[in-house]
Simulated scan of single mutants.
Amino acid sequence: MATNRSRRLRKKLCVDEFQELGCELTMNFREGLSQAEADQFVDQFLLEAIDGNGLGYVGGEDYGFVCLSKRGSVSEEQRSQLEAWLKGRNEVVEFNLSPLLDVWYPENPIGKA
């Protein structure tokens, strides 16, 4: 594919200065967590950690992708706030929050737009 693209096409493809960043999240819940506790955790996670930081989440209870709720990129500050929220929860024994990566093309390096 051509690399000399118009601004309009770069925006449509979400590349170069229009690159959007997010991160992958995997979680392991503590042993013996009831379904009601897990449901309550997910509700709080979505309300406080995701919506509360202007983020969006695509995935299930134990694995998903965090992105911005509108067009744009997750900031390092938002990622850190999410990480801090997860560290403060006793329902989760282990989690992995990846470094920021390209939402649309994860194999591409993060550009300096």
Rank of each mutant, 00 (worst) to 15 (best):
C23Q: 04
L25A: 05
Y57F: 13
M27L: 15
S34W: 02
E17D: 13
N96L: 13
V42D: 09
P99F: 03
A2S: 14
S80F: 05
F45I: 06
E77N: 09
R8S: 08
E37L: 03
V42K: 13
G32H: 12
L33G: 06
Q35A: 13
D51G: 01
L9W: 08
G60D: 09
L33P: 07
L33K: 06
Y105P: 01
V103N: 07
R89C: 09
Q81K: 14
L100S: 09
G64L: 06
Q44N: 13
F45W: 14
F29S: 07
D62N: 12
Q40F: 01
D16W: 05
E24C: 02
G22L: 04
E94H: 15
S6Q: 12
A36S: 13
K87D: 06
G52V: 12
F45R: 11
I50E: 00
Q35E: 12
R30M: 02
S73Y: 04
D43A: 10
Q35H: 10
E61F: 07
N96K: 13
E48T: 15
R79A: 10
E20T: 08
S69D: 15
C14F: 08
A2L: 11
V42S: 06
S80P: 00
D16Y: 05
R30Y: 01
G72A: 04
L55A: 06
N28I: 10
E24R: 14
R30Q: 10
F29N: 09
I110E: 09
F41C: 04
G72Q: 03
L13T: 00
L21Y: 01
R89G: 01
A36P: 05
R5M: 11
E31P: 12
L97Y: 04
C23P: 08
E94N: 15
L46N: 12
G54A: 04
D16M: 01
R10Y: 00
L47G: 01
L13K: 13
V15L: 06
V15K: 09
D43C: 01
C67N: 10
C23E: 02
M27K: 11
D16K: 07
Q19D: 05
L82Y: 08
E61R: 15
A36R: 15
L101M: 14
E31N: 07
D16R: 09
L97E: 02
G111I: 04
F95L: 08
E61V: 02
I50C: 03
W104A: 03
R79G: 03
S6I: 03
S75R: 12
L13P: 06
L86Y: 06
L55H: 08
Q19R: 11
F45D: 02
E61M: 08
R5C: 05
C67K: 14
K11D: 00
Q78A: 12
V74I: 14
L55Q: 08
N90E: 08
A84Y: 03
R7F: 05
R79S: 06
V74R: 11
E76V: 14
G54P: 10
R79Y: 04
A84R: 13
R8E: 13
M1V: 08
